[in-house]
Design a protein around this nucleic acid. Sequence first.
DNA 1: TCGCCCATGTAACCGGTTACATGATTTG
DNA 2: CAAATCATGTAACCGGTTACATGGGCGA
Lengths: 184, 184
Amino acid sequence: MKKYNNTTYAILGILTTGCTSGYEIKQLMDKSLNHFWKISYGQIYPTLKQLAEDELVTVTTTSQDGKPDRKEYELTSKGIDALEKWLTQPIEQVPVERNEVLLKLFFGRHQPTEKTLAQLEDYKLKLEGRFQTYTTIEQAIRTNHANDPDARYWLFTLDYGKRTTAAAIDWCDATLNDPHLTNV
Amino acid sequence: MKKYNNTTYAILGILTTGCTSGYEIKQLMDKSLNHFWKISYGQIYPTLKQLAEDELVTVTTTSQDGKPDRKEYELTSKGIDALEKWLTQPIEQVPVERNEVLLKLFFGRHQPTEKTLAQLEDYKLKLEGRFQTYTTIEQAIRTNHANDPDARYWLFTLDYGKRTTAAAIDWCDATLNDPHLTNV
DNA sequence: TCGCCCATGTAACCGGTTACATGATTTG
DNA sequence: CAAATCATGTAACCGGTTACATGGGCGA
């Protein structure tokens, strides 16, 4: 069986949740797995085309009056097989997450301490904003998708985001208060 | 002033730590900021060429007997300015970190629970390995670079890695023991 | 002798974003 | 009247990895 990249499987997977068009896929992704897998139309449309060629999905074009034409994609059994096979494969390795703040901090010696502190404060604020976003999404899922069988899995991914973000915020605090940084 | 990408600044920054050739840059990066900023020769050599053209660094080719020619790069004052200016700029936004395990977990409903558990166990093992690596590097810095003025900043970045990895491991444990997952 | 270390470099490729083009309808 | 929403798509570009080419020295 042909190998695809993870983004292709993300699209395949999202097709199981009831959305059918490229436009809908983008919308659903933006509000559900945006925090760990963002994608753009520049990927979605060509990928759907490819998936149709490979018969992992079928296409039906429907014309709607007053609205642009719409292509509806549906998973084939071949598509479901491919998705399920991918799901069970363990990941090869945990990828390195690039972090611009750490990169700047790494060269912190070439900068007055107050600038470093400002950088950390700014980062902390951004992380706190992100944490808030996670909490908001979590509430939305709990109220709007209480009976959705997918919901529990979505909450797991949010919990991951909250925990790692909280740890990063704690690190900001610890570093901001580190005597090695403040008493130079 | 021209804008460069972060990798270019990473190279610029690493040139302040005493290494001079492309080969040395790669080596130092592999053992110091590899955990949050990996790069390959395919980026290093063309970037150094560009930096020399833009006069942020100077080049001197030295021939060594018994060894291949070697190009030594040195920061110019213009290069130092560019680096310092970049250092103080706050980051635009915290980037989305793609996570293949979360992506698979998100579609966990289409998989038997035991497979999901296996995926999580595997992930946890990999994270524990990474945590160990961080601890090892930390010890190495404390013993080999005790008096290096850069060392404290390096330790901050390691602390970040340790904290966020530990949080991810905790999440694995919590999810593995979550009754929503184990009693289906 | 095999493979690693030193050392530089490039071409092909991949994954992804951004900006653009098109165009009707609805909402403020 | 402007702007957003619905809807599809492509071309240019960017950042990055991988694989390859070259070639002497050195240790097991």
